[in-house]
Amino acid sequence: MPTVGLIGTRGLPNTHGGFERFIELLVQDDRWAATDIRFVVYGEGEEGPYNAWTSQRNLGFTKDSRKLGFYFRSAMLATKECDIVLCCSVPLSIFSYWPRLHGKPLIMNPDGCEWRRTKWSAAGRLAIAAMYVPAMAAAHRVVIDAEALREDFHLGKKAVYIPYSAPEPIVHPLRQTTRERLGIDRPYMLLIARLEPENNVALAVKAFHALGDRGVDLIVVGNTGTRHYKDDLATMDGGPIRFVGGVYNQPMLDELRSGCVAYFHGHSVGGTNPSLLEALSAVTGVILCHDNKYNREVAGEHAEYYSTPATLSDRMADLVLNLPSAGQARQPERDARFHPATIFTRYLELFREVLKRR
């Protein structure tokens, strides 16, 4: 049976979002049971079976303790033990040639333009950009999760478009237990993101802060351990602006999305963000996205767009004045591009293709 080694993530269960959410969605699809494809996830997860077609391999140390070692060891093991290596992100860099040198296909998923993230220093962004060069060159195929990334990476036919899958569109009633746990007792707007500069959290929080307390809260979901939170956001945490920390309970996140009067999505460095897909499938209020090519490709006419604090603050003020209609602005939906069956088929075809090219 062909085995795909998934490297570059911390493993399962997903407690970080991002690529951990990606592999969670990939391997939990029951359709894999009817194929001969099997997965091995290399990371920090518990060693042994995860489901009938997926197992986990614990590397013996954490990603945070030895980042480069984490990628290299996982690449060595996956090359030795698997038929295909699928690498999430590019820190493998020059070691991306390891699978190719041993006759194993390498699929690279770079997850957008990491070198544009302003949380890194100028030197750090330059170093990250340099990592992309050997990683992209060594890969047999590069998965891009947004068509807009083609012009960023200039990969030609090597690039294959496979976005993330979106959940079934459902309205999730906000349970009393969720209200009590998060202290929700009045209408709220919602922002879910990693608290990093490129996600434009500060833009939304400052715009809301300028309104004062008008009987509506802004709930911000995201790990508050980041430098950006401590340096730029913590002083605004309080009153109607409530940073509640990271939430990785998916049903609770779905309830929060369905119950909000407005949802803010500020991601700006591409490509398709799973959080936006989940919002489109659950939010019944207004979806407000940072105006960039990636968000417009995903959400299209199903969202409104902002680029400055002034325009966002004006729209927030209007929403506060029209809460009943704001909370019933749309029906959750899922574009066919992001249907799990579509994503499954494209990955199955990709795995079959690279196996033939060995």
Rank of each mutant, 00 (worst) to 15 (best):
4 V>W: 12
6 L>H: 05
7 I>S: 10
9 T>R: 14
12 L>G: 06
21 R>W: 08
24 E>R: 04
26 L>A: 08
32 W>V: 07
37 I>C: 08
38 R>T: 13
41 V>A: 11
43 G>C: 04
45 G>E: 01
46 E>M: 06
47 E>R: 11
55 S>W: 09
56 Q>A: 10
57 R>Y: 14
63 K>W: 08
63 K>D: 01
64 D>Q: 14
65 S>T: 15
73 R>W: 00
74 S>K: 01
74 S>A: 15
76 M>H: 09
76 M>I: 13
77 L>G: 04
79 T>S: 09
83 D>H: 13
89 S>M: 11
92 L>N: 00
95 F>V: 04
100 R>Y: 08
102 H>V: 01
103 G>F: 06
107 I>G: 08
109 N>D: 12
111 D>N: 12
113 C>A: 15
117 R>H: 08
122 A>F: 10
125 R>P: 01
126 L>P: 00
126 L>M: 13
142 V>G: 10
149 L>Q: 14
150 R>N: 09
159 A>D: 10
163 P>R: 09
167 P>N: 10
172 H>R: 13
177 T>Q: 09
178 T>R: 03
186 R>C: 11
189 M>Y: 05
191 L>N: 04
193 A>K: 07
194 R>K: 11
196 E>I: 13
200 N>T: 09
204 A>W: 02
207 A>I: 08
208 F>T: 05
216 V>E: 04
219 I>E: 05
221 V>S: 07
222 G>Y: 01
228 H>M: 03
234 A>Q: 14
236 M>P: 02
236 M>H: 11
238 G>K: 02
238 G>W: 00
245 G>L: 11
254 D>T: 05
255 E>D: 14
257 R>H: 10
265 H>L: 09
270 G>F: 03
272 T>K: 07
280 L>G: 06
280 L>H: 09
283 V>I: 08
285 G>D: 10
286 V>K: 08
292 N>G: 08
297 E>V: 10
299 A>Q: 07
302 H>E: 12
302 H>I: 03
307 S>T: 09
315 R>E: 02
323 L>G: 03
330 R>M: 02
331 Q>K: 13
342 T>F: 02
351 F>G: 01
355 L>H: 11
